[in-house]
Design a protein around this nucleic acid. Structure first.
Lengths: 224, 224
DNA sequence: GGATGTGAACGACTTCACAGCG
DNA sequence: CGCTGTGAAGTCGTTCACATCC
């Protein structure tokens, strides 16, 4: 921990702010030179939020900026990674080798950010034993033991909705700490297990909602 | 439109509320009997929000409940579908036949909710002509013409991040009204085109953020 | 000068508590 | 009596505006 401000300040990173921090981090890693400073308005322009918003979010991480200058990209990236908890590697299992599961396994974005998928599970006999991205698909009954002995902390759940709750229960019994759920159900978990649900149908419905209500908006009036 | 309250009331459905309406709708379609009434607290328990929240959200759709009784599931479902804009069919194109694109094409949840995927596009010669779920993969240069002539309103974007903005631009030129974007980039669109971005890496980072900050929470103290 | 950090105003959303009605 | 609908209060998040510091 450096002598600059740490997260021990009086401010907290809200859940909404955490989403934005991920975006800021992308912008920082794409920043041309590590030496060159970056300002809140530059980040804001890249991510599509207000500069005041960026400053508020970053101030919650400590005193990282230099007045009149801006922020140092490397230092800022480190602070954001620490705030998000991605300064270290997380061991992850994926349960459910359907189309979506395969897509996520092949998605390189996870590995790049320090997520290590250590095992893959499915119930279907035809899939068990198959190798995907160097990982052998294991039978579901091995799930609990694997999570416990391998020290797995996170799970990606891409099983059919009928199976989701029972698999989640098994994960909880095995001591999982967080679940990224893609099944279109409301999972019941104990409070000490964190949950993020990504529901694709709901996102598409959100889009139709926006389109339907965008009828009355004023024309662009673009003045650039 | 029935004689019961419609969306012409003084209240608006907020974006946050729209997300929940999707969940309420799921709960309603799974409700055992269409004849039996359903109460705000029953919906709340199923979805995991407060009953006051449910009543607020539903009140924004008009006077649909009966005091002392509850809501009629069929009528409520209809009102929610109308509010979300899914009371009709939407014509959709999918661009980018990678693993994720294939997964979404095979995902039955979309078709069930009235989303009709009318065409699929990719740039890669080896993929063009291939049939997926009854749809022939078309070359990207046909995209604009197809969207225009087929009256397509929505697009699902599952292309690599390098291609996302240029494909989005083509969609905008063709008159698209909304884009569901899975590429990990911040798309620039005119204000009259709606955008929902689903960023898988960010969701996983959100999860590590929650896990990391859940250390200090009080133990469950489950009193059931 | 220029950009940060932050009190204060503002706005959006949620919860409370209860009046109102079937 | 039970459940909805809704003012009022409360909470959370965002924007404004400017003092502060390099």
């Amino acid at each position: 921990m450096s002598d600059r401000g740490a997260a021990s300040e009086g401010m907290r990173v809200s859940r909404a702010a955490a989403q934005r921090l991920s975006l800021y981090l992308r912008c920082l890693t794409a920043w041309p030179s590590d030496a060159e400073k970056i300002s809140s308005s530059q980040i804001a322009a890249a991510v599509g939020v207000s500069d005041a918003q960026v400053r508020r979010d970053l101030a919650a991480l400590g005193h990282l900026g230099q007045r009149g200058i801006g922020y140092e990209p490397r230092e800022l990236a480190t602070a954001i990674r620490e705030a998000l908890g991605i300064h270290r590697t997380w061991r992850v299992v994926l349960v459910g080798v359907g189309n979506l599961g395969r897509a996520l396994l092949r998605y390189q974005g996870f590995r790049a950010q320090g997520f290590q998928i250590v095992a893959v599970f499915d119930n279907q006999p035809t899939k068990i034993g198959e190798c995907i991205e160097g990982l052998r698909v294991r039978p579901l009954h091995e799930l609990e033991a694997t999570v416990t002995t391998e020290g797995v902390e996170l799970a990606i759940l891409t099983v059919p909705k009928e199976a989701a709750q029972s698999v989640a229960d098994a994960l909880v019994r095995a001591g999982i700490r967080g679940i990224l759920n893609f099944a279109p159900v409301v999972l019941r978990l104990p409070q000490h297990v964190q949950l993020v649900t990504v529901d694709l149908a709901i996102q598409l419905e959100q889009l139709t909602f926006l389109v339907q209500h965008a009828n009355g908006v004023a024309p662009p009036a673009f003045n650039g």
